[in-house]
């Protein structure tokens, strides 16, 4: 295969998803003269902002009985003030048809946050809201082999039980409680998603770091505790970790 053939096959484009912040002009009255006057005033406030600004024109807030909308004229008005319509947002058939003629893209009406919910949907939503979601109980994660330095074990959404030793440099993480039945020399972080009720239990406290809901103590502080080396349980009282002998 020659060099030229290889070049021919090289991809010339890539498709990528992207989130853009776009200004939306929401039209509430079908009155182009007033729009013209008000836009003039608006643009005068911030001429730099409005120079060739891409825009989505929202027609979904326009009342049903506003009469026929002259989309071409509307586009011309906008253009005059430096607004460049790239798409319109509408549901109405006649608007969609006009937009096609003018080569404008059509977007569905605005996202759920702004939209009035349909009766059927709202009933379902209310039912959902009434019944508060039961806290999902995930099975406890049980580790039976030593957790070595450099390893990280995370019990997402639940408790973590380690039946072997936890070496210095190892890291235990749990959304719930952490239990360690072997010597504990690593780091243990309970309630990592902010559960201040989470606790840490260990048979032999020798940890590098203990943390509950982001409040922590390092070995230097832990070492001074009289319970260092003993079986303890650790809970959060206020903002301070409380270490109690078991």
């Amino acid at each position: 295969m020659s060099q030229a053939d290889l070049l021919d096959q090289a991809p010339v484009f890539q498709l990528k998803g992207s989130m853009l912040a776009i200004t939306v002009l929401e039209l509430t009255h079908n009155d182009l003269a007033r729009l013209d006057a008000q836009l003039l005033a608006k643009v005068a406030e911030a001429p730099n902002f409005f120079s060739n600004i891409p825009l989505v024109l929202a027609l979904d807030k326009l009342p049903e009985d506003c009469g026929e909308l002259d989309l071409a004229e509307l586009q011309a008005v906008c253009k005059r003030h430096g607004l460049c319509i790239m798409a319109i947002r509408t549901e109405r058939e006649e608007h969609i048809a006009r937009a096609r003629e003018l080569d404008l893209a059509v977007l569905p009406p605005s996202g759920a946050r702004e939209r009035l919910i349909e009766p059927a949907e709202s009933a379902e939503a209310r039912r959902k809201a009434e019944k508060p979601r039961e806290p999902e109980v995930r099975p406890t994660k049980v580790v039976t082999t030593p957790v070595r330095g450099g390893m990280q074990v995370y019990a997402e959404g639940g408790d973590l039980v380690v039946l072997a030793s936890v070496s210095a440099g190892a890291e235990l993480l749990a959304d719930g409680n952490i239990h360690v039945y072997g010597p504990m020399r690593g780091r243990a972080l309970a309630g990592v998603k902010g559960n201040a009720k989470a606790r840490i239990f260990c048979q032999r406290l020798g940890a590098e770091l203990l943390s509950i809901a982001g409040k922590y103590k390092v070995a230097e502080d832990l070492r001074r505790d009289p319970a260092w080396g003993d079986a303890v349980h650790v809970s959060l009282s206020g903002d301070v970790l409380k270490i109690t002998r078991l």
Binding site: P146, G149, S167
Partner: peptide
């Protein structure tokens, strides 16, 4: 000892 501990972790995983 610490490096060996790390190595043991890698052997196991």
């Amino acid at each position: 000892v610490r490096d060996s501990d790390r190595m043991l972790g890698l052997l196991a995983s």
